[in-house]
């Protein structure tokens, strides 16, 4: 896309700055989940949080609270209940963040 108008280019630039990088979100989630990793199997986007790891439901909710504050979004409990994989969690955070 060719952007001729400088004003628009500035806006795009600004928006890009406030956009959250998926890698950052994934990194933060993996950081929180690392203590619950089982064996050598690395945590990836496909990891089913409540099943593939040793984390219990209360600890999941506490992790969500940390992520909420890290990325300044709120994830309602009914939304958390629908999240199964690391990818889904990251997508939810990105979506809520973009909607702010």
């Amino acid at each position: 896309m060719i952007v001729e108008n400088d004003g628009i280019a500035d806006t795009l630039e600004l928006r890009r700055e406030s956009t959250l990088a998926r890698g950052d979100v994934m990194g933060e989630i993996c950081h929180h989940l690392a203590p619950f990793q089982v064996g050598e199997k690395p945590i990836s986007g496909d990891t089913v949080i409540a099943k593939d790891l040793t984390i219990d439901s209360l600890a999941i909710m506490d992790m969500v609270m940390e992520l909420e504050d890290r990325f300044d979004v709120s994830i309602p409990m009914n939304v958390v209940a629908e999240i199964h994989t690391v990818d889904q969690l990251a997508d939810t955070i990105l979506k809520l963040h973009a909607r702010r």
Binding site: M61, M65, S74, I75, P76, M77, N78
Partner: peptide, 9 residues
């Protein structure tokens, strides 16, 4: 509840 629920610390 039908309301949205959020926990705080």
């Amino acid at each position: 509840t039908q309301a949205e629920v959020v926990r705080f610390k």
